[in-house]
């Protein structure tokens, strides 16, 4: 299976045209990481994003006295990495493979260049990524509701 064929079956790319898929696929490569591998670290310049195919990645932050605190776990089907897209282009959290992970890695420098030169690709791609970010935000908001708290403590 080519990278383009693979991407065609995966949200957020499943709605792109064949031509655009091929363009996106040209920036993609299949990768794998062992458990414990740090994919990126808080504060570093942000390059790359990943569509996780299997395994789990923990996003977290270092806290004095508490060590690495995980704020979110990502798994199969999730997109990892936004910071390359927005200033200041630095990673906000640290990503660590919790288990062995397989993913499709995108060369975001090339992906951004493609999107900028061809808005007909850039716009739908940005919309699709936005959809994923919104879902992530809604899930995070659900947690903010603290739904499982005891009403006595409210």
């Amino acid at each position: 299976m080519t990278d383009a064929e693979l991407l065609a079956g995966l949200p957020p790319f499943d709605q792109l045209s064949a031509e655009h898929l091929a363009a996106v696929a040209s920036t993609a490569a299949s990768v794998s990481f062992p458990a414990g591998k740090i994919l990126f670290s808080e504060g570093e310049p942000a390059f790359g994003c990943w569509l996780i195919r299997s395994g789990q990645v923990a996003l977290g932050s270092q806290m004095p006295g508490r060590g690495q605190v995980v704020v979110q776990t990502l798994g199969a089907g999730d997109m990892l990495g936004w910071s390359w897209l927005v200033p200041p282009h630095c990673w906000h959290f640290t990503a660590i493979a919790v288990t062995g992970v397989t993913a499709i890695e995108f060369d975001t420098t090339r992906l951004r260049a493609l999107a900028e030169t061809d808005p007909a690709l850039g716009y739908p791609l940005a919309l699709k990524l936005f959809e994923v970010v919104v879902a992530r935000l809604q899930n995070t908001r659900s947690r903010l509701l603290d739904l499982y708290g005891n009403p006595r403590e409210r």
Binding site: V70, T73, G75, A76, G77, A135, N139, T140, R143
Partner: peptide, 22 residues
């Protein structure tokens, strides 16, 4: 899966809808 980040937790962190969507 848990809502609030916690030390020494090896399961998932996220709302139930996240593993559900996977």
């Amino acid at each position: 899966t848990i809502d609030q980040p916690a030390a020494h937790w090896h399961g998932q962190v996220g709302f139930v809808t996240e593993p559900l969507a996977r």
